[in-house]
């Protein structure tokens, strides 16, 4: 039977971007205010799940051609690299550095190495969540 899902597909296309940008916002808001890589990653994967619900796994796979296990591994490597980088400078493992920079358009901003670590966490969360959902979803 062919179901009519025009409305959900149309809505999903728009809502996907709203959720995804909110995920980026939450991710960047982390550290000083509530948020961070973990919740950001969960939100981002919920956006992808919405696409999976509206269309189907194979369509989404062509839209976002990412192997999620590889994404997880990349995230872990970024996180470990950020954590162990201070060892090269002779500081203890997991030491973070930050400073204030004046960037064009944005102005005075604090850049923190914790954000790089959180990028790793973000990728791991998206990778793991999507791997789980794909594994369950494929089982028909």
């Amino acid at each position: 039977m062919k179901t009519n899902d025009v409305i959900i597909q149309f809505t999903a296309k728009i809502v996907f971007f709203i959720i995804f940008f909110f995920a980026i916002h939450i991710f960047l808001a982390g550290h000083y205010t509530p948020g961070g890589g973990f919740v950001g990653g969960l939100l981002a994967s919920s956006a992808i799940v919405l696409l999976v619900l509206a269309f189907d796994i194979n369509t989404v796979r062509t839209i976002i051609p990412v192997t999620y296990t590889t994404l997880t591994a990349c995230g872990l490597i970024i996180a470990l690299a950020t954590a162990s980088f201070p060892m090269l400078l002779g500081d203890p493992f997991f030491t973070h550095y930050f400073d204030y920079f004046t960037l064009p358009l944005i102005g005075k901003t604090s850049l923190h190495t914790a954000m790089l670590f959180d990028t790793g966490v973000f990728l791991v969360v998206v990778g793991v969540t999507m791997t789980i959902i794909q594994t369950i979803g494929e089982d028909e």
Binding site: T69, T70, A73, L76, I77, L80, S84
Partner: peptide, 12 residues
């Protein structure tokens, strides 16, 4: 750290 790192690399 070394086994952890190799564990991640071996995921590829």
């Amino acid at each position: 750290i070394i086994p952890f790192f190799f564990g991640m690399v071996l995921m590829f």
